[in-house]
Each structure stands twice: as C-alpha cells, then as structure tokens.
Simulated scan of single mutants.
Amino acid sequence: MPDVIDRLMSAINAHDQGALMECYVPEAVIVAPEMQAEGWDEIIAFRGHIVEGFPDLRVTVWDKLVCDDSVVVEGTVTGTHTGPFLLAEGEVLHATGRSVSVRCCWVFTVEHDLIVSQRGYYDQLECYSQLGLKLPAPE
C-alpha cells in the first residue's frame, strides 16, 4: 500500500501544509464538489480554505483499497465550522459554530509514491444539514 496516503492523512490531521505538499507531484489535480485545484499553489489554497472553515478538522480512515496505481480511501471527516466555507454552489457560508461528522471517499492515482490526482466525494446533504442548511423546496 502506498505510504504517501498515510503521510497525507497524517499531514491533513496535523494541518501541516509543508508535509501535505510533499505528498503531491507539482502538477497534481484535486477534484471536489466545491472546486478543482491544479498544481501546488491551488492545492495549498484549497486545503487552506478547508482548514479556515474547520480549524479542528480531523480525518478518520475506515478502509483503504489499492489496485495498481489507484488507492481508494473511505472515512469520516469531523470538525467545527468556525470560519468561512465555500459551498458547492459557489457561495461562502460564514461560521455557524456547528460540528459536523461526514462520510467521505477519496480516489487517488499514485505514481512513484506521490499523488498525481485526487477525487473527493462526500455526502453533501449530510454535511449541509449538520451545518443547518436546508435545500430549497420544489416549486
């Protein structure tokens, strides 16, 4: 199993941007519901945005599956929303003070023990309802 995924999860939990960037190739791409980040500068901005919104963010890994150069990680992200957070619709949600615990899945492509791409999926309805948001009712 690629060590880089374990290093990444440790760096995320430690909020260590330097250690985090050592996990990616310079031209890596992250795709998530909120945005796409390409290259180190955008990845740092993307990760910084998440930590700004949830400064106590923690990832708990449930399971990892490796198949050739692909790694799938399933887990839970927990944190308290005390700063601005970019929603998938492009709006910024200001601090609610609410705690979240959201199921997530990440799919990584790894080459030479570095991450080339990462796609993230999470239950947005679960996250948004825990933040106190409501979906608009159909007309």
Results as ranks from 00 to 15, higher is better:
Pro33Val: 07
Asp41Ile: 07
His94Leu: 10
Val66Gln: 07
Val72Gln: 02
Asp16Trp: 04
Ala19Phe: 09
Ala11His: 07
Arg7Met: 05
Asp41Ala: 13
Ala14Glu: 09
Ser101Val: 06
His81Pro: 02
Ala37Lys: 04
Val72Asp: 03
Leu125Glu: 07
Gln124Met: 14
Glu42Arg: 12
Asp56Val: 04
Leu93Met: 05
Thr80Tyr: 02
Phe108Gly: 02
Thr76Gln: 15
Phe54Glu: 01
Leu93Phe: 01
Thr78Val: 15
Ile43Ser: 09
Arg7Leu: 04
Asp3Asn: 09
Glu89Gln: 15
Asn13Phe: 05
Gly75Leu: 09
Cys105Phe: 04
Cys104Asp: 05
Leu125Trp: 10
Tyr128Thr: 01
Val51Cys: 13
Gly39Asp: 03
Ser101His: 06
Ile30Ala: 07
Ile115Thr: 01
Asp113Arg: 02
His94Met: 11
Arg119Gly: 05
Asp41Thr: 13
Lys134Thr: 15
Lys64Tyr: 12
Gly90Cys: 07
Asp3Lys: 06
Ala28Met: 05
Val4Cys: 08
Gly39Asn: 04
Val107Thr: 13
Cys104Asn: 08
Arg47Gly: 12
Ala19Cys: 09
Ile5Thr: 08
Glu38Lys: 14
Ala37Asp: 05
Glu34Gly: 14
Asp3Phe: 01
Ile50Lys: 09
Tyr121Arg: 06
Val72Ile: 15
Ala95Lys: 07
Thr82Ile: 02
Thr109Asn: 06
Met35Ile: 11
Tyr24Pro: 01
Met35Leu: 15
Cys67Phe: 04
Glu91Val: 15
Val59Pro: 01
Thr96Arg: 00
Pro84Tyr: 07
Ile115Ala: 01
Leu135Lys: 07
Cys127Phe: 13
Gly132Phe: 05
Ala28Asn: 04
His112Phe: 07
Pro136Arg: 04
Lys134Asp: 10
Asp3Thr: 12
His94Glu: 13
Ser101Glu: 10
Tyr122Cys: 13
Met9Val: 11
Glu27Pro: 04
Asp123Ala: 03
Gly48Thr: 14
Asp63Cys: 01
Gly90Met: 07
Gly48Pro: 06
Ile12Gly: 01
Arg58Tyr: 03
Glu22Met: 08
Val72Ser: 05
Tyr121Asp: 05
Thr60Asp: 10
Leu20Ala: 10
Lys64Phe: 12
Ser117Gly: 06
Val107Tyr: 02
Val51His: 12
Thr60Arg: 13
Trp62Cys: 15
Val116Ala: 12
Ala88Tyr: 07
Gly75Met: 08
Val92Asp: 03
Glu52Leu: 14
Arg119Gln: 06
Pro33His: 02
Ser10Ala: 15
Asp41His: 10
Phe108Tyr: 11
Leu125Met: 14
Asp63His: 11
His112Ile: 11
Asp3Ser: 09
Ala88Pro: 12
Pro136Ala: 05
Phe54Arg: 03
Asn13His: 07
Leu8Glu: 08
Met35Tyr: 12
Gly53Asn: 02
Glu139Ala: 09
Leu20Cys: 11
Val31Phe: 13
Thr78Arg: 10
Leu114Thr: 10
Ser101Pro: 03
Asp123Ser: 00
Val77Leu: 12
Val4Leu: 06
Glu139Thr: 05
Gly83Thr: 02
Glu42Asn: 10
Pro84Val: 06
Arg103Phe: 00
Thr78Met: 06
Thr60Lys: 14
Glu111Lys: 13
Lys134His: 13
Ser101Gln: 10
Arg103His: 06
Cys127Trp: 11
Tyr128Val: 03
Ser10Pro: 08
Thr96His: 02
Asp6Glu: 15
Gly39Ala: 05
Val25Glu: 13
Gly53His: 02
Leu93Ser: 01
Ile44Tyr: 00
Leu125Ile: 14
